[in-house]
Design a protein around this nucleic acid. Structure first.
Lengths: 246, 246
DNA sequence: CGCTGTGTTGAGGAAGATCAAGCGCCGTGG
DNA sequence: CCACGGCGCTTGATCTTCCTCAACACAGCG
């Protein structure tokens, strides 16, 4: 992972409402205080939309986390087909292991800000191992969901399922309510995530709008009937109590 | 994970040609000797075909590995649809973490024999952590492949891709040559893995036979044109040198 | 002011699903 | 010993979902 040239970006701080803080606390409660997350100033790495953050097979050092923006694990086929295998949201760590070669290409779906949680100021480098292990398990969970979605669901079910996953993950870092969030994905990115064409995504979206299931204007999503969406997508209902909102 | 009633199964030993030994050595070279894998006698757990080995969300203790038979991570939908999310082969460990609740249901695709690598005789319980971490990373790798396969490939490409994955994994534990292995899956199981119906799997299979791509009789698979299969499936060519055969 | 990216719509076609039927094999019980 | 039933495989006919190709509107931007 190399730094892009340009003017040095401003150093940033992470407060308690920051998605990075919230995600870290989900993964390993109490860790933020232990590693002095709030007292440090981080030198962010900025990546422009559509640029690669990590190339497939590239060794990654540091424990980078998404401070802002969306990214994705992507697979490219020889003939130009593309599959988004997993979406990364604000707060998410990038790596699954320390000092390992990455098992996929990561691209920025929007302009992205990254910070490295690792560094010599840590009293013990192993402090972050716990976070990575739990993050890996969460990733496995989402990949299992994705295989079921892509393998056995039709377009409208896949769409509903993805929206509910995104809502729950964003809600966990304070970026969504039960029914509303911002989703900065184009219909083509949605298509690459859902295993469909952008034309069919558009038509499915029209259908969901007409059935009063969702609203989507600008980049703002509103789930008009979250229960019905969960039913049709076979999505597990609110099992875990929702995390406090901002 | 509870033991089924019945007569106590015979205790078994693991020799150097055993898939469990080979897989363990792949994941953590030298570990088999360290934990005395060959000197111990294990009490196997037997599971009949189509029975559940682990139920979704169930806490699992012990580090079980597949000594013989095939199993699968499965998702069931409310209306009866089923997706096989990941296939487990001889030698594969079951759990991704110690003492954790399992993130999916595991069913036996064939009669299965399991052994528990964990136990009080281990000098250090943490010895197995390394194995589990690497096994988890391998699983992530396969799940990423599965999402690309299901999301963006057509039936014949999916089939070719799956066959190559199975060949490579089986070859790693001495159960396949470059072109041949035993695949004890019914066409319906293949359909649930590939996100297709069994009828369409059958027709795709006919097509591949007619094009001289593969042979499949009994449960024996022969890849007649592995290079062509890899090309059409966008499957990475022999990058890693193959492991020694039995 | 033209260009590019994004969303939208139409028409036609292909991949895969669904429904239905028949066949061979094998284990089981009469 | 044989009839039966279940399972897995195969094939045909028809239908649905989704893709492909194409065109156009609109907004942002150099």
């Amino acid at each position: 992972m190399s730094m892009t040239p340009g003017p040095p970006p401003p150093r940033v701080t992470i407060d308690r409402s920051d998605p990075v803080h919230r995600r870290l606390e989900q993964l390993s409660p109490g860790l933020a205080a232990t590693i002095g997350l709030h007292s440090r100033r981080y030198s962010p790495r900025i990546v422009r939309s559509r640029r690669e953050i990590v190339h497939d097979g590239e060794p990654v050092s540091g424990v980078w986390a998404l401070r802002a923006g969306w990214a994705a694990l992507v697979r490219h086929f020889a003939d130009g087909r593309r599959q988004i295998e997993h979406v990364l949201l604000p707060g998410d760590p990038l790596p699954l292991e320390r000092e390992a070669t990455y098992p996929a290409t990561i691209v920025a779906l929007t302009p992205v800000t990254l910070i490295d949680l690792d560094g010599p100021w840590l009293s013990d480098p192993a402090l972050l191992d716990d976070v990575l292990r739990r993050h890996t398990m969460a990733t496995v969970h989402h990949l299992l969901d994705a295989t079921a979605r892509l393998g056995r669901q039709v377009a409208i079910e896949r769409f509903a399922h993805l929206l509910l996953e995104l809502r729950d993950r964003l809600r966990g870092v304070g970026l969504a309510t039960d029914t509303h969030f911002r989703m900065p994905l184009t219909q083509e990115m949605l298509a690459d995530t859902l295993g469909l064409t952008s034309v069919h995504v558009n038509r499915t979206l029209q259908m969901m709008r007409q059935q009063q299931l969702i609203e989507l204007e600008g980049r703002e999503v509103t789930l008009l009937q979250p229960g019905e969406l969960a039913r049709m997508a076979d999505y597990p209902s609110p099992a875990v109590p929702p995390v406090a909102m901002r």
